[in-house]
Design a binder for these strands. Sequence first.
DNA 1: GATGTTTTTGGAAGCGTTTCTATAGTAAAC
DNA 2: GTTTACTATAGAAACGCTTCCAAAAACATC
Lengths: 361, 361
Amino acid sequence: MRGKPTLRDVAERAGCSITTASNILQGRSHLYREDMAQRVLSAAHELGYRANSVARSLARRRTATIGVVLDPQHARITHNVYAHDVLDGVLAYLEPRDYDIRLITPRTNDPAAVWRRIDNGSIDGVVLIAPVMGSPLLEWQHYSSLPAVAVGSTLPDEYLLSQVDIDNDAAMAALTEWVIQQGHRAIGFIKGHPLHWSAHQRERAFRRTMTRHGIPIREEWILQGDYGPESGAIAATQLLKQKDLPTAVIAANDDMAVGFLQTCRELEVSVPETISIAGFDDAYWAQRMGMHLTTVEHDRYQVGYLAAQMLLHQLETGDSHPKRMLIPGTLVVRRTVALAHALASVPTPNATILTEGGSRQ
Amino acid sequence: MRGKPTLRDVAERAGCSITTASNILQGRSHLYREDMAQRVLSAAHELGYRANSVARSLARRRTATIGVVLDPQHARITHNVYAHDVLDGVLAYLEPRDYDIRLITPRTNDPAAVWRRIDNGSIDGVVLIAPVMGSPLLEWQHYSSLPAVAVGSTLPDEYLLSQVDIDNDAAMAALTEWVIQQGHRAIGFIKGHPLHWSAHQRERAFRRTMTRHGIPIREEWILQGDYGPESGAIAATQLLKQKDLPTAVIAANDDMAVGFLQTCRELEVSVPETISIAGFDDAYWAQRMGMHLTTVEHDRYQVGYLAAQMLLHQLETGDSHPKRMLIPGTLVVRRTVALAHALASVPTPNATILTEGGSRQ
DNA sequence: GATGTTTTTGGAAGCGTTTCTATAGTAAAC
DNA sequence: GTTTACTATAGAAACGCTTCCAAAAACATC
């Protein structure tokens, strides 16, 4: 025997058939006499035998591997905090269950090429991370019959994909609600990247909540952003040069809110005294800034965890009915939104409110 | 034919043998008559055939997959910026070369279990990300004969591992040098996590440079940190309560430098007027803070890229001789280190200096 | 038309497992 | 002493592909 020991080597050394060795090593030793089991086990141990997972996958017709696919749009994983958190959750669920992870980061937009890469028999199922509008990942139906769960994009139903996401709509509604309850009526909004469904959902929730309260929306206070900090800074510059200013601005995510804040500092506009600003996502680095951004926190780790769970459930039951699961957010009240008038702040019923100390009210 | 089409189906449809189909689909059509090649190609296309990569791996005895292993110490990938950047580089090199990535995040410290998981025949080689002292990943030699490259930890030679890392020593020496050239002689240091080799290297380089300039090191100004921002904050509290203060502090990384800065702000100690502070790493979120931290930038992406390159080289040539490669850093001069005296600042010869505008001098 | 050469194609043996099914051997039941 | 019923083990096919080697076909040479 040269090279790595195979099952055959183990069988030979234990003086039994390959079948026997295989069965015993798979934990079916109750089928055999005690001493046989022992012989096999120790032979395997002495040889340092480890089953070849490729051969096993071929024979079992399942690979015990899940593909995690990043949208080509954000192929560089760096700074894609969303992907990290979700990935962590996915790993946390899968690792103890002896699933492996194949990380796939396509660098083309050609759906055929992308799916050829994804679905080549090496994975049992796939988690699609944050597909944006027009993403090749969404062509799933045409190219693959792999069980799939999309994560981080609440897609229209026609995509027939199982989904797990944060509840953008409810959370933004709750945030807007809360800002309104602080007495603000002149509220601006910085929109997210137009290719992300979340951007539209967040904007819609903002508008709906404003309207529900009979507050007029001033379109000149609705600014286009792209979820990047720079776009928040630009929005701030644009907004602050207007003669008439809102008393509060809600950004579709924390990165833009921080960009906005940064610019306010530079222009010496005081936050929250002159203008209040709220974010969305509770970004890690925004927390570190000590800017005490009022925002909505989401458990993205949980999203990943549940997505993995949903996927494994699909695999095990064969039930490929698309499901949808939304994780509620938590309002985190810090210091960047002030009372507009002396008005008792009543907690909104739609979301848990977390004050800075961490106590839930 | 039911299920996914196999090579056999393609061969049948094209009216040829499996061998022929295989050869042609692997691009060896020059071996065949033009029309044969065409028949096979279109049969494959019509059936939507995609080679099963598991079967292929088994037959070829190579998987075209690289394992990327995170140290169990930082199994949660989130906020492990180092891992992200490196991973990006690895992906960038491997993806176009049709290698797949298996992401492995062991959750135990038992080397046997860890390596059983890593080396089960499903990968051709492995990139070990930032193994810390005592990490099971370092037991490589005892458990695996897989080609391996360690990244992000400059290990002692006895580990016999190929390595790619940033040049901690040279970069910290250059930074220290520069701070000294700004006229500082009373310089403190915040150490990194004691289980990371980098922490010791950075500290050694600091001490060596100080000594080389004949500057005494005051041990009460050398504080223990752990690379986390909180530890920087704690160090600041400890340091600032001393009666005698250094005029500058160098932190072993940016996270701690920022924690330090934060605390200075809170205690209303002005930086850099009262005390200068330099970081190391040029962390993304520190950049965003608008704190203009003077630091050393490293191309971690490059580290990952080169590691992947080195690994593939080992695979292709079979040359398993441990190699070592260090990437130089770039001093980034921003605003947190001031001149201690009116002294002309001379660029150090040991590193490129990047001033804030981006121009290299 | 026999022989040699080159070009095309196919047979068959793997790769290392799993798993279905078959076969001894032994014990209990009649 | 035959049938029934297990128990313990092994044979062999299959998974889908690659690849070495041989066979067949086509063509050239004498």
